[in-house]
Design a protein around this nucleic acid. Structure first.
Lengths: 194, 194
DNA sequence: CTAATAGTTGACTGATCAGTACAAAAAAGG
DNA sequence: CCTTTTTTGTACTGATCAGTCAACTATTAG
């Protein structure tokens, strides 16, 4: 009982996620968060406790929306042969990253690399997302090797981890370059290495 | 003429570089920079103009010291066959990153991914370092293909860009994981893809 | 020597920071 | 209606932020 909340937690987290995504943890101010979420300071702090706790929740929200959608695409057989699914993942982020003038990239990757705000809790949240993607790619590699679409013999987990690294490296490169050909070379090279 | 400076620009930039490396741009305060460099606020601002200009100079200093030393190792034939040089680069950063409790990683990569402070000037400085490494790797791949150490036929620049991406991805993973085996898989996979 | 130039120092600025205090408001139970 | 509980809005906190300023110091030119 008591007075009911006037906001949806999900909607507020979506808004907070956008702020942290655009500015990073340290540069995002509580003022930004209040303005974007539409909540007053009292409500924000009553609901989430601190800027850092809200950051953690925003990262969780990112995992539950953006990251999980990516995993779903990878797992969807209708998205084509495994090689095409992996290619689509990379081509998709090239389009998304180059189209964004703010070059926000991937929130999980940003949270991993930003020195400020990377507590062990945040690192664990990011690590979980990284492992999820690794496992999804590993599953695809295993399938591909089983159907003969991919050459067998190499350890699927090693192949997956290498592909995943190239994927994150691609997103790092996309932070500072506009040259699509550079990024497409990474796609072609990573696919050739499967 | 006039009163001579009491400090060495290089030593001050080395100190400032450490601060930005440990904390990132936004979280580094002018107080931190004064304390670490030993300069008063007046001297710092007289010499470098602003926190952001000092950041740019620190990134340049990073390129001139750390990054260039890495390029020199890659270019040194005494460091072994090209495959061993590329392996040494990756194994070296695994050791360095895992040994650092603050997980500073690579300053250029941090500057690329941090949303705050990434002006076009900073992006250009980082991009230059990225291209330098790309070219160094590409040169090695070309040599390796020429001597028969590496299989020929694939475009050296594409191979280099893919390896470089895996390298940056490796450093991203090292920000949040302690598991050396995960990182070693990336090394083995990236070398197998050459 | 004096004048001119440049570097140093530390106090100071107004703005902004994350977080708190508290009273008004909105609901449910009785 | 009245008490209890929770949320809300806002004013407020002390701290800290990047950057400035003027007085002072060290040096060279003449």
């Amino acid at each position: 009982m008591g007075r009911p909340r006037e906001f949806s937690d999900q909607a507020v987290l979506d808004a907070a996620m956008e702020v942290f995504w655009e500015k990073g943890y340290e540069a995002a101010t509580t003022q930004d968060l209040c303005a974007r979420t539409g909540l007053g300071r009292g409500s924000l702090y009553n609901a989430f406790g601190s800027k850092h706790r809200l950051y953690e929740e925003a990262i969780r929200r990112y995992a539950a929306t953006r990251a999980d959608a990516q995993l779903a695409m990878l797992a969807d057989p209708e998205a084509g042969p495994v090689r095409e699914r992996l290619r689509a993942m990379m081509l998709g982020v090239i389009d998304a990253d180059l189209a964004d003038p703010g070059r926000r990239g991937c929130l999980a990757l940003n949270a991993a690399t930003e020195q400020s705000g990377r507590t062990e809790d945040v690192a664990a949240l990011v690590r979980r997302q990284f492992v999820n993607l690794e496992q999804a790619i590993c599953h695809l590699v295993t399938i591909g090797q089983g159907t003969g679409e991919l050459p067998a013999g190499r350890p699927p987990l090693q192949v997956a981890r290498t592909f995943q690294s190239a994927y994150y490296g691609l997103r790092v490169l996309a932070k500072v370059t506009d040259d699509r050909n550079t990024l497409l070379d990474v796609v072609d090279g990573a696919l050739a290495a499967l």
